[in-house]
Design a protein around this nucleic acid. Sequence first.
DNA 1: GATCCTTATGCAAGTGGTTGCATAGTATTT
DNA 2: AAATACTATGCAACCACTTGCATAAGGATC
Lengths: 197, 197
Amino acid sequence: MSLKHAILVLLEKKPGSGYDLSQRFKRGIGYFWNASHQQIYQELKKLADARWVEFELQTQSERPDKKHYRISAAGRSALKAWLQEPTKHERLNSALLVKLYAAHLADPQALLLQLDERLAAHRAKLEEYVGHESFYLDRGDALSQKQAQRYLTLRHGIRYEWNWIEMLEESRTLLTQGRTPQRPMLERLTRRKIESK
Amino acid sequence: MSLKHAILVLLEKKPGSGYDLSQRFKRGIGYFWNASHQQIYQELKKLADARWVEFELQTQSERPDKKHYRISAAGRSALKAWLQEPTKHERLNSALLVKLYAAHLADPQALLLQLDERLAAHRAKLEEYVGHESFYLDRGDALSQKQAQRYLTLRHGIRYEWNWIEMLEESRTLLTQGRTPQRPMLERLTRRKIESK
DNA sequence: GATCCTTATGCAAGTGGTTGCATAGTATTT
DNA sequence: AAATACTATGCAACCACTTGCATAAGGATC
């Protein structure tokens, strides 16, 4: 399980409370890791028991008290060891793609509704990520190796959203107008690759 | 949970045993749903208890006996109802992207190894899917709505693999040569969109 | 004034999914 | 002759994750 390690990565970058972490998962690195607050609090407890993180209680008068976590030396070496380990391939499961695969069994109107809802969500995400991209682009060649690597994960997120948008738009066209795309995917993709070189 | 419904979709298309289903998840629709054989057998039991599927025992002399499952009328209407329901957004979690995000903490050599292993896997998958694509392309305009919709889910799979390949190649370049890609993602993607119209 | 949102943490119960093991015959490879 | 792979199903224990609830105080909205 890697939630442990995802948390360690975040705490290594910057210490913070469980609440902070849940915000950073949502707003920061949501394009490759997501976790609910319950998961985070449970995991932080385990991490503290294992001495991979330490925390101090910060009492606040205006707001609820919080636990300020930071990674420990043991946590750092556990993280380093994990980075070395082989990584399991994550399995992908998409209920929406199951539905689209079985679209002929469904009421087209109801499917279109779900499709549009998703399309809007992916467009919003894409816009968000493109906003983040400008941070890296503004710095141009001045990107450190570390920043450049982080930019690459963001690019992955952008392409991921774009993929969904294209898929959903194609499905929309098919469901409403019966038009089906003819151009082979690979040709299209490699063409693009050659151009951008 | 949608494993139930993914199984129903497969059985609606064609009845078969638990073993058959696990093959079809792996080799057929693996680009949007995956399930282990333990999961499938457990789920088939539940589905049979709920009367959404029926089975008959087929005794075989040369091979182990098997249970031949097929979807029931109740299963069909449950499936139809599910297709109408709103679909939750699946959360994405990729341990490899966490590692790449934190690449500066890792031994570059060990990371490269993982990266190449994954790159090979995604290239193999892409090749497999492109093989499947020719099935649809050969039929050209003769595709039924049903087939066309299935083709779209495959296109999604192709783009998904392509995205990983590009990401991993870019990371490889960065880790080995320190070169970082400069072209903004969105411009690149939209440019392609205009061309293909 | 009531309701909702944000900050901040947590428990308890349940469901979904993984890991490891077990069985058993045939076929293929070393 | 031995080891591995394929067909075929399943149990038991465990781990990961979700759902629903609870508390608590401030600020914003209706």
